[in-house]
Design a protein around this nucleic acid. Structure first.
Length: 278
DNA sequence: CCCCAGTCCTGCGGGC
DNA sequence: TGCCCGCAGGACTGGG
């Protein structure tokens, strides 16, 4: 499931298209169900064809192609979306083909097995409304202890649930929330309004450490094998996981069996020996 | 403010 | 062995 490190890996994988010109964005006849574009196919094609690719950014878990017109193509992979520059894992789920001229990278694809992802073309005004600071928090790679405490310190929510709130902090999903709290030594059910400054410091430090390390490893490929980098290779961070999807296995630090609980209808993994409530 | 359940969607694994 | 159900969860929505 693409979270910040996986999406950052996608972004870096297609940076070779920057400075080029979008020849075409073609919606492929995916036999399951062609991707829903916004706006619809004709307008999407008209407003993207021939546009310069000025930059490729990441906003949280989305890849953003900045076009010369000021419009932005926003790719939101959600659970199973992938950006690929080579043959796909399974051509059945290819949804879009991007063709580029005048740059090193000539072609890339959007692939999505389950089809929960979205690709949207947004005007500058729409970008501000949908992706601006009122909708989305600061990027997780920029967090500090003060910023986390400011945004979450008054909340009665459990810290693990709050870390998933994209209005609070941007880019953390279920997997990395678990890993971050393990590294910080914080119990996932600890209430935000009961955490001290030193604990916020540990959470901020762990957030940067875990996400930056995961980017170096090009993200996590889980046992279902869905996430791949743009070259259709496995990521490497799954081998560094401390708790995610390890229920019953001994903690690598203290040996206690890793626990699985459910918070806000999502699985949470943690070590009862290493992670305390305060 | 915050929580919860439902929605989208497909593949896989557990259980019978 | 084979089939079916439920689970996986990112983002969003509507109701409490």
């Amino acid at each position: 499931m693409p979270e910040l490190p996986e999406v950052e890996t996608m972004r870096r994988g297609i940076l070779g298209a920057v400075g080029g010109r979008l020849v075409e964005v073609e919606r492929l006849a995916c036999p399951r169900k062609p991707i829903n574009l916004a706006p619809r196919v004709d307008a999407f094609r008209r407003r993207t064809t021939g546009q310069d690719i000025a930059a490729i950014d990441r906003i949280g878990k989305r890849v953003v192609l900045r076009l010369g017109s000021g419009d932005a193509i926003v790719i939101e992979p959600r659970m199973t979306g992938l950006v690929l520059t080579c043959d796909p894992p399974d051509p059945l789920y290819l949804r879009l083909r991007f063709t580029v001229s005048g740059a090193k990278l000539r072609e890339f694809w959007y692939w999505d097995r389950r089809g929960l992802g979205h690709v949207r073309l947004l005007t500058p005004a729409q970008q501000l409304a949908a992706l601006g600071p009122t909708k989305l928090g600061p990027d997780a790679l920029t967090v500090t202890a003060e910023l986390l405490r400011e945004r979450l310190g008054g909340s009665r929510r459990a810290i693990k649930v709050a870390l998933l709130d994209q209005k609070a902090v941007l880019g953390i999903g279920n997997l990395y929330a678990a890993e971050i709290l393990f590294v910080a030594g914080v119990h996932p059910a600890a209430r935000c309004d009961q955490l001290s400054r030193p604990v916020w410091r540990r959470i901020a430090d762990a957030t940067l450490a875990v996400l930056e390390e995961a980017i170096l490893y090009e993200g996590s490929t889980l046992s279902d094998g869905t996430y791949r980098n743009v070259l259709n290779q496995d990521g490497g961070y799954q081998n560094q996981h401390r708790v995610y999807d390890k229920a019953g296995e001994p903690c690598g630090h203290c040996g206690a069996p890793i626990r699985r609980i459910v918070q806000a209808q999502r699985a949470t993994f943690y070590c009862p020996g290493c992670q305390r409530r305060k």
